[in-house]
Write a protein that binds this DNA or RNA. Sequence first.
RNA 1: GCCCGAAUGGCGGAAUUGGCAGACGCGCUGCACUCAAAAUGCAGUAUCGAAAGAUGUGUGGGUUCAAGUCCCACUUCGGGCACCA
Length: 832
Amino acid sequence: MSTQADAGQPDENTYSFADIEARWPAEWDRLQPFKPADDGSRERRYVLDMFPYPSGDLHMGHAEAFAMGDVVARYYRQQGFDVLHPIGWDSFGLPAENAAIQRNAHPSEWTYTNIETQANSFRRYAISVDWSRRLHTSDPGYYQWTQWLFLRFFEKGLAYRKDSPVNWCPKDQTVLANEQVVNGACERCGTPVTKKSLNQWYFKITDYADRLLDDMDQLRGHWPERVLAMQRNWIGRSEGAHVDFVIEETDGKPAQSVPVFTTRPDTLHGATFFVVAADAPLALDLVTESHRAELEDYRDGIKSLSEIERQSTEREKTGVFTGRWAINPLNGEKLPVWAADYVLADYGTGAIMAVPAHDQRDLDFAKAFDLPVRMVVDTGAEDPAVSGIATTGDGTLVNSGELDGLGKDEAIARAINLVAEHGTGEHTVNYRLRDWLLSRQRFWGTPIPIIHCAMCGEVPVPDDQLPVTLPEDLRGGDLSPKGTSPLAAVEDWVNVPCPQCAGPAKRDTDTMDTFVDSSWYFLRFASPDTTDAPFDTDAVNRWLPVGQYVGGVEHAILHLLYSRFFTKVLYDLGLIGFTEPFSALLNQGQVLNGGKAMSKSLGNGVDLSQQLDKFGVDAIRLTMVFASPPEDDVDWADVSPSGSSKFLARAWRLGQDVTSAPDVDPTTGDRALRSVTHRTVADSAALLQGNKFNVVIARVMELVNATRKAIDSGVGGADPAVREATEAVAIILSLFAPYTAEDLWNRLGHPASVATAGWPIVDETLLVQDTVVAVVQVQGKVRDRLEVSPDITEDALRELALASEQIQKTLDGRGIRTVIVRAPKLVNIVPE
RNA sequence: GCCCGAAUGGCGGAAUUGGCAGACGCGCUGCACUCAAAAUGCAGUAUCGAAAGAUGUGUGGGUUCAAGUCCCACUUCGGGCACCA
């Protein structure tokens, strides 16, 4: 398209996005239309986009996500809300560290350069944020409060250290939380994860499992169902029982009681062996001396496997006998105790009773080691001992003593009662969710504010000594991953006096997972300049919960689960007055190219800044939003930014043809066009409530078409209705194409900014049409259309329909069985 | 294997409580303007058929005066989880 008049001279009658983009930013900076008043004069609304990680410049994905969030923020502003719409950066993390190693620099250089680049791009992209609230999680003024919050968790026993086999990424040389392992590989770099036994910091998120689950009731209907489903699965609540099995005294090893978790206590009589997780300390504890060597060999073998290999369900079952025997508390049977890797150390109790007839994994193991199989629930299917297929359905209990004859559910209840009476078990709930491993052996993160003292143990850094800042003189190779934190090598940073006894002590040298930083940033935005607390409680309670949160589905579990957890803890600490941080969630889709995610390796990336240079900000924003419903993916190969550009020019040109004065009375204008305008405004509001942004744009296009028609071949540009329509176009367009809308508004003779012009007031009387088209069907097929008054009676419409020539022709003399009338829209005639 | 979600023209997509399927846009075709082009405007564009008309929302059944929409069974695609006892 041409953006300049042919003579090379800017022509004020030709739409030029470059001219328009140059005209308005300074004016917006002067007017500050996006700063919330926060004076209680208007209802508050908090709209938030997931804050970006500063990896280079903005890309197409940012452009889509932030276009969506901005529509919401701008809409609420037009509706008269006091809108908080802030921006910040999630600026700690590995990429900065890796870049620093390559460039022999400090991670902050790369980080803050990228932030500046992105901030400039966001300004050009005209997102309507309050820049004065900008924050970065890597600023000491921010991470001071991340540390402060960590200490509050620590005081409540919600942050603790333990030895445990943890996920280890050999490439990044750091541990990973369970949530950061995807299909056995590192979420960040794709390297297969291995296990390593380490002493690490954890947040006790499992204490909140039930509340994380139950409080999802508040979110149902406002969050995507699939995100709720993913969180539900991740928490993985399952009802069952703990049953204690006594391990007999053998070869001088004393008897000891070991609990198992089972969801099927009804099958207790079907237990034929007992398995402990081979990699759990319990296995080493139990094993007899004569079997110890064998177990240790087996454990070494497991360690060499990657998590992907280990978790494969295809793999043959393996294990070793421990030399011990467990007593079944219900029938006194002696069961051999095995150690195997198909039992997980950190789920349930790390030990199971094996019921091969009714659990496929146990059956596979029984077959591999020739252990007995005893069916105790007759489901009508073939005996699993013969078929090799474990049965899990309902049936009648057999071979089960006093449980015989009961159904599955009754037997579960009865079995729990029985073990409870014996004092060897109880009903219990188990979760798949594990505690959140938060330590990282890397540099560019929030230092853990704990000092280790030989005398006093784990000593918190006193609040008044926060923040514990990162040393600034580390460069390049100082940061290279070595499996221990780079901070450990900085002697004068590590060695400090113990705050309690003043004796020699050492700082904790790990840093926090960056998801800790992002678990509370939405609170900080309410009062970003607070210096004596992480946030001002009153300000937080005024603005939060976030009314609309916008971001990608890749955070369905990680960030969103952690933030929900933090919010509940802070509520319990009395720091905030609500339990869920995000009332509504919108997951925008991805931007693809040719059906695939854009990536360097595929060479199908589209550069955002080039697109902006070519088509302009507004055309790109409009294209993103118009292409599909917000939650669907946009394939850049299928869309037309030039089409958007054409439409924007068309809308903008309406301004040239409006010849009435800005203060003209619209009620004297053409009723037909006014009716279209008011219907568009009314419908757009309803569509925006439902996040159907793409449809709103379609409706504005219709309004532009109708207005153009009125100017060229209708009432003409002087009609007040044309002005009213064009003003409505400018206001609705201000949500999607801020530059064009502002310029159009200006050409209509109004002062900036259109962003705060206010949503047009709908005249209800204009929504009522003079006549409507009633459809007349014969046997469900449309045969005629009648123009009728909208308040026609059923009888009158029936008469009219039956009188229609078309209808009589179609009926062709047949009698009439029924006539269904839905005045004024439809008549359906059913012939004999 | 289990759990979600989706399927509508050449393409992206629209369709209050079941009530005119295909809004709006892209693409394509034709026309006007032009020496020509670009830009712009106008018209057409589900399929079959010359037409009348018939068919048509992944497949097969069902409910209903009426089904893209509700019910049952299935197919395909996308996503999540997956040795979780």
